[in-house]
Design a protein around this nucleic acid. Sequence first.
DNA 1: TTCTCTACTGTGAACGCTCACAGATGCGTG
DNA 2: CACGCATCTGTGAGCGTTCACAGTAGAGAA
Lengths: 343, 343
Amino acid sequence: MTMNATGGRRRPPTIHDVAREAGVSRGTVSRVLNGGHYVSPSAQEAVNAAIRKTGYVVNRHARSLITGRSDSVGFLLTEPQERFFEDPNFNVLLRGCTGALAAHDIPLLLMLAGTPDERRRIMRYITAGHVDGVLLVSSHSGDPVADELRDAGVPLVACGKPIGQASKVSYVAADDRDGARDMVRHLLSIGRRRVGTVTGPLDTPGGVDRLAGYREILTEEGIPVDERLIASGDYSRAGGEAAATRLLAQAPDLDAVFVASDLMAQGVLTAFHRAGRRVPEDIAVGGFDDSPAALTARPELTTVRQPWDRISAEMVRVLLAQISGEDPAAVILPTELVIRGSA
Amino acid sequence: MTMNATGGRRRPPTIHDVAREAGVSRGTVSRVLNGGHYVSPSAQEAVNAAIRKTGYVVNRHARSLITGRSDSVGFLLTEPQERFFEDPNFNVLLRGCTGALAAHDIPLLLMLAGTPDERRRIMRYITAGHVDGVLLVSSHSGDPVADELRDAGVPLVACGKPIGQASKVSYVAADDRDGARDMVRHLLSIGRRRVGTVTGPLDTPGGVDRLAGYREILTEEGIPVDERLIASGDYSRAGGEAAATRLLAQAPDLDAVFVASDLMAQGVLTAFHRAGRRVPEDIAVGGFDDSPAALTARPELTTVRQPWDRISAEMVRVLLAQISGEDPAAVILPTELVIRGSA
DNA sequence: TTCTCTACTGTGAACGCTCACAGATGCGTG
DNA sequence: CACGCATCTGTGAGCGTTCACAGTAGAGAA
């Protein structure tokens, strides 16, 4: 018989081979491949059989050459990468995006742009049309990359609200403010009155919005906001530890603290432990993210879950919509309070 | 002047545009692009200037169509993915590979093959020549994917020694046995005599080789191997906790334990804590991996560092060598004992 | 009948690049 | 002087696909 398929790993079959096998023309095979419009049922079937028989797989390079699309998207990480790879949320996100794209048969290209050099190289790669769109992950938003890409006309979806220039950039984010509100409300509901907070960097939406939620609830409850109860961190464990130490010094009567990330909350726990404060007896601690770190911590962290699975799915959905011509869109997803031992 | 480059985002410049701009032919431009052999210095320079001026970037699809190469490689994860994405080592590996490839201007395609369906789709994608080679990460080695890819003639490098069929598959691994030997030797050197171990799954090289190292040192030191001191885990925290509990029941006089992963060691610490055993006073604990988990643990884990940065670099090196025609190769890298509080 | 419309099919002509080849030049050697 | 050889250059062909277009056939309307 034919010595192709699994056997002789020679030249892979082309659309020509399929056409010959099916007794139709290239054009018909191509039409079957692209949705099967204007193809008779008999031809349709013959082509499908031929595809199965020959083991044909479309050559994406040839297709891309003519369509101008690449049928792939980039997953772009700006900034020093350690921060991300340390962050368990990031992994969930990466996995979710890869999976969601795979459902559309679209490969994901992982791109790391830590240094200016890499950034340049990658921008060239992207703007040369080697990907159809970009999923952008960058914590310090206000990242120039977002604007550059937008200006270059590259479909783009950011993870988290980009702050700064009210650029028309699509994004998907959890409702940070509302999540913070839930947590602080919870801390108050269990009887705490000196509720502090360790914020994220204030050039990130997570930093700004979670702090805003904190302020709002206190105000709504008629509790004056005491600036000595506010310390800023950098989303790292060490930063959380340092912030907690400052907090204890500034406000020794602290009885609860809302920490803007679980990783920082781990540092906060360490600081409190060293200072001889018990959690949650002396001080209740609430985190944010519901990362695996929340379960590693002792006691386990009460935290705010971000719907990462939905975030990744939405990012992909919005990006694909944008690639096929729709306008940029913003999606904000609800968070969920997860109560464990620390508060 | 010319209305290209940064300005009008119309059709990107082609090799034709560059040739015209430089006053040479396509062929000469192509030669410059591919190493610059047989090109006069003056032409070389004119072409480079034209490339800068036009902002030309090679169209990889057109190139791939004719060369048959795709100039990209896949990073393939088999098995249920959670396991990997939970594992901090994996992240270091992914980051390292992406970076090492970027240095060669080769994009990395992340591929997740958790389900049989995905596996089929991805195998088709790979064997269709959409990537030039594959970096394979799969903990339970003996994975059929490795053999399938090898049989399909796809350049391949595995992370960790594939066990089972002595297949001619390239791999890069840390020296598990030697690392285990160092750790057990260390435990003995601090005076422990009832040294147990929690192994990894015994269908993984990490499981087998680390146990082998454990046995070897005990034997060399003339200490009989007591099977009650050996419990197997599954590289998960919960598995470590369960194994430690069994160990305590089987051998209450345990005074040290070598755990085949840091994550499991965390579980072991939890179990010991619950049983009222102090670490390291009552029982010394040694981990493996030097993952961030080692620093999260209390006390911080004495552990064996795997050189993940070098592993990723070597994987990429070996893969690229193989793509350009060299034979498969195995690389084994030394580990390093990291002493902290737990032992 | 004849004409129009829809459903379907086949055929060049690209897409942007590399490769093989043919040609041109300059230089050293028989 | 003729010849080989190495260096350099341009040209046509073709990689595998899609797209626009030109058809063909059959059904229904005029």
